[in-house]
Write a protein that binds this DNA or RNA. Structure first.
Lengths: 172, 172
DNA sequence: GTCTATAGTCCGATAGAC
DNA sequence: GTCTATCGGACTATAGAC
């Protein structure tokens, strides 16, 4: 992340990353499928955490409440300080390649969420739509947690974004 | 598309594509920024069409109605026969790289749609959410138009998917 | 760890269309 | 005379095969 931040993703070679880490190029590719993947190392853990929390929500909780609980809970898996995430997002924002990779990770998260909701008895279209609304809440909360410097924690931002989505749904 | 279909995207080289087209590799890259882009050549036209229809909808039309009109209208820009789109989607489904590219094109479409809705006076969060619902309608209708062989045209599928989304919103 | 194929860029040269 | 399309060769970096 230091190298990507200094000179940009496209202008950083895997050889340079390997050198700074005291490894060889080949070793890098043994750990990460490609040059982009190194920035998304924690995404599997995030997805597993979300799925297990939503699956474990009380059976009588509404689908959206179950999803909201799962997203709030993700605060534990995110870096302690938002500055770390902010630096990472700045790197991603500067590279189309990295944005593509991020989108497919988020799509995978959404699909896993929808599958979990179907297991809770929701119909396929309702599950997909609820998952997409959940992703919108996640993106909004994450963005604000990164950008706003008022120190509110991630879970608070999730509750706020959820309230806004609900108000929007009620009004129109 | 013929070559990607025969041997798969990853196993097709740009040299082979150029050879079949009677050109050189260099000429391919003059026309397309990379090997994936050749499959998404029509996407700009699609986006412009959607934006201009939504922007031109009657001022008193609801945001979702304006979006629905724009999506219905896209039938004109899609290939005449769904088989063409089906073959293309099969190629994309077989390659993670192509899925990434497709997701970023759809994200661009969603962002353009949201911007158009804001110009119509909608607030930023409402515009984004309406755009995402529109994209869900588009994806659903497109998928069914490709997969179902009953000959119903794209616009009919759009109206059906929209009705389902509305019913879902009303019920929960 | 070595070797190699392929994607994608940079340089420059040529030629027809309007 | 400018614009746009073609081609050739050399070059770097990613990523896969072994």
């Amino acid at each position: 992340m230091a190298l990507y931040g200094e000179r940009g993703f496209e202008n950083t070679t895997v050889a340079e990353i390997a050198e700074r880490a005291g490894l060889t190029e080949r070793t890098f590719f043994r750990h990460f499928a490609d040059k982009r993947e190194v920035l998304f190392a924690g995404s599997n853990e995030l997805q597993e955490r979300l799925v297990s929390t939503v699956a474990g929500a009380p059976a009588d909780a509404s689908p959206l409440d179950a999803v909201a609980a799962g997203i709030e809970d993700l605060g534990d898996v995110l870096p302690d300080r938002p500055e770390t995430s902010r630096a990472r997002q700045a790197i991603i924002a500067a590279s189309a390649e990295l944005q593509e990779r991020e989108l497919i990770k988020l799509a995978s998260l959404s699909a896993a969420l929808a599958a979990t909701l179907r297991e809770r008895g929701l119909s396929a279209p309702a599950a997909s739509l609820t998952a997409e609304i959940g992703m919108a809440v996640f993106r909004t909360a994450f963005e604000r947690w990164i950008d706003e410097t008022d120190g509110r924690d991630f879970a608070e931002h999730v509750r706020e974004a959820l309230g806004e989505v609900r108000a929007l749904a009620a009004s129109g």
